[in-house]
Amino acid sequence: MRHKPISTLIAGAVLALPVAARADGYFSKGEKRLVFQEEGERSRTEKITLLSLAGGMLLTGAVGTYYLLDSQSLSDEVSASGMHTLKTWNQELEDTRLDAIRSGKVATVALGMSGALAAATIVTYIITQPDAEVGYQDWQTKNMPSIAPTRGGLVMSKGWSF
């Protein structure tokens, strides 16, 4: 695709959210049509994969956080340093201590999984990034203003040649 920005002026107004509308339209010299790019769309499978990974990340993150807080709470119940607690170490306290350790292990595993899923989500997000698609809009010989639909908005353009 030829690219001659000096001889071609692109005038466009994006009538949508800046993030959503990414059409970069321009007129190629000699071509009687508007050329523009817009983001491609992920396939359904890719979307499902991404949502699954993100959902798993959030779910395991929530589970991990729950057990993390539980572990900290139980640890606080039995932890002691400095002053004597004036308590007798009994089976109930021992069970609480073991529960704290168990919850801590669950939290570690769950948060580790959450981290791994987060990384997988990011990687998947990147590798499934669709290529930009090139679109064309027939050039109006009378050089009338053109409006082209884009994902999340539309592009209004008009060209001048020098």
Binding site: L74, A80, L93, G112
Partner: peptide, 18 residues
């Protein structure tokens, strides 16, 4: 959070009766 998980029950000497 993972760093905080390292927090385990910490029990010093002379803080509990047998």
């Amino acid at each position: 959070s993972l760093m905080l998980v390292q927090c385990k029950p910490d029990i010093s000497r002379n803080t509990y009766f047998c």
